[in-house]
Design a protein around this nucleic acid. Structure first.
Length: 551
RNA sequence: GCGCUCAUAGCUCAACGGAUAGAGCACUUGACUACGGAUCAAGAGGUUGCAGGUUCGAAUCCUGCUGAGCGCACCA
């Protein structure tokens, strides 16, 4: 029995009690059935009696008592105890629990997928670093978290588009082009320009690709460096992302918003909604109507459109392309944008609490030998994604960045993340998978194949029960991670699951030793191992981390 | 000055308003004639920054305070 089925059964018990006139309450839509931390509290616990006590006007324990009587009638439920203020502790019989192993193995890659967010159209934008240099460490965090979230949302049935917003218009690009031009001509980088080895490399690539470029007049040169530089830089960013396992559905160009007239149209549409006004020669959006600190300029007095105007057009583009929820993932240094972005949605007539979500990711520090690492050869004083991959590898980087809440600042210790120790949690999880793969190979060598004659009741030790209980949680973990937009829940779960497996391993022999016989228990445990391997592999895939068969 | 985020074991971090706040590392003590010991078991380690409030119940929600990071452009 899965937790979802049990939860449903509890709900049925509530309805039945209400129909029988034992309880006068509105039947809740959903009841919480959770794995208690303490094993003495049974396999599952529910607080439904505590929640219904007040509306029913009865003591919680009395509510629990009458619900428990009904639950005890259900096949597979071995015991229902009432504890503390009114918790109901449910114990399942071993066969009912063990059956889960077969369910999982048969579902394979589909196990864990659910319909928590079925059909919800979500636009998930992350990284979106300016194409004027390599992705830096903050962007790497979002690459890991954002991509995992995209995978998780898909697993919860959402219709997700992952997107990278390319700021390929504006003065930063001009500075970038000027920096390239200066490098190519052996001149000093202009004021406020970009420095780093990558500038020299790109400049060189451009001059080699178009040998006559330095003979052109200055302004024509700048145009070449602008278009070619941008092309090369974007290609470089895509390469970094691809190598990191992040494949965006869309790289959305800001320039197209300007060129297509989408920015002007956006202003017109916002004006129709009544939130645009003219003052001091500029055109403004009254974002203060929706909680922003101050109103924002869309078109400056000199006629130039602002970056903010493009933001508004971009939001509307996402909306026009069908997204119900636009999720923005920004660095902590951009948290000041949250209110103005949400105000754009509200000014457009949308629900700012539903149609737009802005997630803020705190900073990431890197440590080596106890000292903070700040410098990068490639790009001067920032750490790039390629540096991170060189230092700790894709798996360790993705896993470690995705295992913490984005609300907390994190410190990546290079010494730890390149070591093969327990402290490096990605190895702990991957090792469990490698062990199971090894077991599978060993079984094949011994000529043992998993029998279809599966006797789930044999999975009866505390370690097997614990492992089965963990396996049953997987769909709910994915659903919670998706609904809360918190991929780290998946990573933490996998660590718990790997722990449960390692403990099982230490206490339960799977394959026969020496000349022992292959028994029904051997087969039952092989089902359990394969179920666990399936969940670990599915979970690691949601994080974009490999599930190695050997390490 | 205003705003956002954060504050949990010595360290790095968890904990959809639920029972005795958990892991890993580090520390102490154990388990290899072994399916992978990159593992496991036991011990010790906490007034969840401080003070109030909400309720059957608060690390979690509300208010105030302290401390840290970041942000407050007709910049992008």
């Amino acid at each position: 029995m899965t937790p979802a089925e049990l939860s449903q059964a509890v709900l049925v018990a509530v309805s039945a009690a209400v129909e029988a006139g034992e309880l006068t309450v509105a039947v809740p839509e959903h009841v919480t059935v959770e794995r208690p931390k303490n094993r003495d509290h049974g396999d599952y616990a529910t607080n439904v009696a505590l929640q219904l006590a007040k509306p029913a006007g009865m003591p919680p324990r009395a509510v629990a008592e009458l619900l428990a009587a009904r639950l005890r009638e259900i096949t597979g439920v071995a015991k229902v105890d009432i504890a503390g203020p009114g918790f109901m502790n449910i114990t399942l019989d071993a066969a009912t629990q063990g059956e889960l192993a077969r369910t999982i193995v048969e579902a394979g890659e589909a196990y864990g997928r659910n319909e928590a967010l079925k059909g919800l159209k979500i636009n998930l934008e992350f990284v979106s670093a300016n194409p004027t240099g390599p992705i830096h460490i903050g962007g790497v965090r979002w690459a890991a978290v954002g991509d995992s979230l995209g995978r998780i949302l898909k697993a919860t049935g959402a219709d997700v588009t992952t997107e990278y917003y390319l700021n390929d218009a504006g003065v930063q690009i001009t500075k970038f082009a000027a920096s390239l031009q200066a490098a190519a001509n052996g001149r000093e980088v202009p004021e406020g320009g970009y420095v780093g080895e990558y500038i020299v490399d790109i400049a060189k690539a451009i001059t080699e690709g178009a040998p006559g470029v330095l003979d052109l007049p200055e302004d024509e040169q700048l145009q070449v460096f602008r278009t070619e530089g941008l092309k090369l830089m974007v290609a470089e960013i895509k390469r970094s992302m691809d190598e990191f396992g992040v494949h965006f559905d869309t790289y959305f160009s800001e320039k197209t918003l300007h060129d297509s007239g989408a920015v002007e149209q956006a202003i017109t549409r916002l004006r129709e909604q009544g939130h645009v006004f003219d003052q001091d020669g500029a055109i403004w959006l009254r974002t203060t109507d929706f909680g922003d600190d101050k109103d924002r300029v869309l078109i400056k007095a000199d006629g130039e459109t602002t970056y903010f105007a493009a933001d508004a057009a971009y939001y509307l583009s996402k909306r026009d392309r069908g997204s119900e929820v636009s999720v923005y993932m920004l660095g902590a240094d951009h948290h000041g944008y949250v209110n103005r972005l949400k105000a754009i949605a509200a000014c457009a007539g949308d629900d700012m609490d539903r149609n737009i979500e802005v997630k803020i990711g705190q900073f990431v520090k890197m440590l080596r030998d106890g000292e903070e690492v700040r410098m990068s050869k490639r790009a001067g004083n920032i750490i790039t994604i390629d540096d991170v991959v060189d230092w700790i590898g894709v798996d360790a980087a993705r896993y470690t960045l995705a295992r913490s809440s984005t609300d907390s600042t994190i410190t990546l210790d290079i010494n730890i993340l390149t070591s093969q120790t327990n402290e490096n949690r990605v190895f702990y999880v991957q090792y469990a998978h490698a062990r199971m793969s090894s077991l599978h190979r060993k079984a094949e060598e011994l000529g043992i194949t998993r029998s279809t004659e599966f006797k789930p009741e044999l999975l009866a030790t505390e370690w097997e029960a614990d492992l089965l209980g963990q396996l049953g949680e997987f769909p709910r973990v994915i659903a919670a991670a998706g609904e809360l937009r918190e991929p780290h829940r998946v990573a933490r779960y996998l660590e718990d699951l790997a722990g449960a497996y390692h403990r099982f391993w230490d206490n339960c022999q799977v394959l026969p030793k020496g000349d022992e016989e292959v028994t029904d228990l051997t087969h039952a445990r092989l089902w359990l191992v394969e179920a666990t391997r399936t969940v670990l592999a599915n979970g690691l895939d949601l994080l974009g981390v490999s599930a190695p068969e050997r390490m």
